[in-house]
Amino acid sequence: MTDLATRATRVVATTEGRRRRHNGGGPRAGTIAAFVTPFFLPFVLFYLVPIGYALWQSLLVVRRTGGQYGTSYTTFGGFEQYTQVFQNTEFWGSIGRIGLFGVVQVPVMLFVALVMALLLDTPLLKLKSFFRIAAFMPYAVPGVIAAIMWSYLYSPQLSPVVDALKGLGLQPDFLGPGAVLWSAANVSTWLWTGYNMLIMFSALQSIPQELYEAAKLDGASNWAIAWRIKVPIIAPSVVLTTVFSIIGTLQLYAEPAVLRQISSNISSTFTPNMLAYTVASGNNYQQAAAISVVIAVITFVLSFGFMRLTSKKAGL
């Protein structure tokens, strides 16, 4: 690459005389459009238009003329759909579950990921690449398959884990009404810990070693270096993984949907996304659109809010 670069500079030098510039040296607008459009057109069609369409749908209502059996027609209803969403106890139930899930699962997962990343960055461990691969491997497993695998480990008939715990005199019920949310949370943790760990680990690897030298000379322990120097430096990565985790939590669908196939303690409205799908399956698209919009807005507010909060704290 250096070879190419030197050749290039030579070419630039020799052709300095016949340099021709059109509008500031860059390519023409048409050329730029040809580069950008192949991505941007599908982006508009399959990202922006659906968002706009959902917003529009959510403002419509279906009314009937002449009672239950009259003809139905769609009309502008203002915020009527949103009022219904906010009065829906199932909606609040799903938000409550997902909130509880997020408040516990996200910090636990990220804390484990951070500890793993820090340990992999110390000379304390052997078998480092094995640990890295073992933790990252679940990222290759689709959420549905992960939930199917774990559901066999939760199942009272097939699970060796349940057998082992029974051998210890315990009566575990991973699919019971209180436990099933945490069983779903465990699947998410299993899937995403390694991914988050690698993001943090990559950030740690890019810190120059000299930064620790002074601290080491002062006799600081590995522990102190890790928590007082490393963690503050990689804080942006931790923020990034938190934001991705918040987005992921609010979208939760596959894991509880699979567990629902073997547990009666997961309703069809267990998470906001399941609620939206269930409502849409009942052909109430306008209501489903309103739910989708509310989920997207909550996602945006939480992830931007979290970024703002942390960047203010860090004084950036």
Partner: peptide, 10 residues
């Protein structure tokens, strides 16, 4: 940042 599942229904 857009949740892709929110796009699926529309």
């Amino acid at each position: 940042l857009v949740p892709t599942t929110a796009l699926a229904l529309p």
